[in-house]
């Protein structure tokens, strides 16, 4: 067990590679109850969400979800988040475990500055969160719920029961695979977890820890806030221009992000593959001769693709696929190459 954002969590159960492969080929189960939930409600809830986050929440229908960023006035990350439209004037933000208090204080302060009718509640203690991920996820979960999962589209959610427990089910995940995240009352989380393990036994379900969660998300090119980007990284630099609502009115950091999009961008997060036999990891420098010019933000040997890959922040001149990168790994210089993202994309969405 390791300490993670104040939670004791297993790095692995049966082994990172075993768990990773289960999710890519069958189904895996994750306890991600450490994730936080912050709710905004009131007549001005939409205006508040629009002001504090980069994506355009006005495009969300009831029951729909979007990936977004909580931004600073410089267009950098307070956190990366999922925005759920619970009702016309009610939104839920799913935030990273280590940032719950920071995000909550940030949102309370920014919405208070603007005024209006909106209340901000840290609801994290009300939710346990269980993720079931993999090509067999729908089939396994369907045996425990009356929600028509085939009708639940990617990045939508529904209310119902799983194993007799009132839950909210969203078709989301952090693995690059089809799957669901189940918001469950904490007191019933163990019951739902055990029911899913039992229902998935024939399909080969495996409980999965933080280790596989990290290799799966990286193989799918999904960013990890705090590792790949932070309050010094803009949304555009992180390669996430697609989560900026360019057409919406002002929001925190909009001016700088627009300028970067228009051409002032100096560095960008890219995906790379190692050409030499080595694994680059968070913090290793990208070198030009003796000068550090960039930094590796994530890296691993991926169990499914069986490649040594990673993400690095590099000068824009080195950000196109094919660009060679020299990385310093504990004093040894190794070669890598910028490649198109994502590294892994599942063959067919369910």
């Amino acid at each position: 067990m390791v300490e993670f954002g104040g939670w004791d969590m297993p790095v692995e159960y049966s082994g990172i590679i075993d768990e990773h492969m289960a999710v890519r080929t069958k189904v895996g189960l994750f306890d991600v109850s450490h994730m936080g939930q912050i709710e905004l409600a009131g007549a001005d809830a939409l205006a508040a969400v629009q002001w504090i986050s980069s994506n355009d929440a006005s495009r969300l229908a009831l029951g729909q979800i979007q990936y977004s960023a909580l931004t600073t006035p410089e267009g950098t990350f307070v956190d990366d988040i999922l925005v759920y439209r619970m009702a016309d004037q009610h939104f839920m933000l799913v935030v990273n475990a280590g940032n719950i208090m920071k995000d909550h204080q940030w949102i309370v302060a920014r919405t208070a500055e603007r005024g209006g009718d909106v209340s901000v509640v840290n609801a994290s203690s009300r939710y346990g969160l269980i993720a079931i991920q993999g090509p067999e996820a729908e089939r396994v979960l369907q045996t425990l719920t009356a929600i028509e999962l085939a009708d639940l589209k990617y990045y939508w959610f529904a209310h119902g029961e799983v194993a007799g427990v009132r839950v909210m089910v969203s078709r989301t995940g952090y693995t690059g695979e089809d799957g669901f995240e189940i918001f469950v009352p904490p007191a019933q989380a163990e019951r739902v977890w055990n029911a899913l393990l039992e229902a998935g036994e024939a399909a080969g379900i495996k409980p999965c820890g933080l280790g596989a969660r990290d290799t799966l998300r990286l193989e799918a090119s999904m960013r990890l806030c705090g590792s790949d980007m932070d309050e010094h990284t803009s949304v555009v630099e992180a390669g996430l221009g697609w989560i900026v609502g360019w057409k919406k009115d002002g929001f925190l950091g909009a001016d700088r992000l627009r300028a970067q999009k228009a051409g002032s961008l100096e560095r960008r997060l890219v995906g790379f593959e190692m050409r030499d036999r080595a694994i680059a990891r968070h913090g290793h420098a990208v070198m030009d001769g003796e000068t550090p010019i960039g930094i590796v933000t994530s890296g691993t040997q991926t169990p499914f693709l069986k490649k040594s890959i990673g993400l690095a922040m590099v000068p824009v001149a080195l950000s196109a696929p094919g660009a060679p990168l020299t990385i310093d790994i504990r004093g040894r210089r190794v070669q890598a190459e910028v490649v198109p993202e994502p590294f892994y994309k599942r063959s067919k969405p369910a």
Binding site: V11, E12, G15, I16, I17, G211, I279, Q301, P303, R330
Partner: peptide, 28 residues
């Protein structure tokens, strides 16, 4: 955990007791 890479020295290298002779990497 899962070992994915072992970096070993060249033949002929002279080692002292306790000296680092290579690195081993697992996924984590």
């Amino acid at each position: 955990g899962d070992v994915v890479f072992v970096e070993l020295p060249d033949v002929g290298r002279v080692l002292t007791q306790g000296e680092v002779f290579g690195t081993i990497e697992s996924v984590k």
